[in-house]
Amino acid sequence: MNKKQIVALGLRLALFVAAVVAMLSVVNYLTRDTIADRIRAEGEAARSELMQGCTFTEETNVPFPEDTTVTAVYRAEKEGVFVGYCFDVSVKGYNEIGMIVGVTADGNVTGVKILSQTETPGIGSKAVDETGSYLPLFAKHDIDSMQQYFVSGATISSKGIWNGVSDAVALCELLTEGKGA
């Protein structure tokens, strides 16, 4: 095979790639906004379930502590009165888990909603089941006593989730203190 042939083959392949990329950019253009809207709507639905009847505004200029797993903070208000915060949290179990944690102004966890997870069915999935035996406990116990609970076979995932929730509680404390509440 001489150089000319290689170039000809390369060009042919490049042509196929270009055609496919063109097709994909069209599909991406058509679906991009729907995907973004959907992700936003999912977050909003989860937040209003954690803090019923509240309106949410995203907080900017949050003094994120170093090493925190919280990625975004939403301030929850009910009829103009400050109620608490919802925190977007992204933690590592065996795999990355994206969740939203609701914390009231006095530091009580209202619940944990899982937005995205890739745990193995039948193994790690027990730790991220919102109706399972683990996640609902966060709304019933304070964060320190939660440390004694974990899902057997999914200890690393449970610990990851606990870390995320405790980061959210710590950040809530920091934010409410800063406001002199």
Partner: peptide, 8 residues
């Protein structure tokens, strides 16, 4: 801004 071409 072409993360959607990741797979290919």
């Amino acid at each position: 801004g072409i993360e959607y071409l990741e797979t290919i």
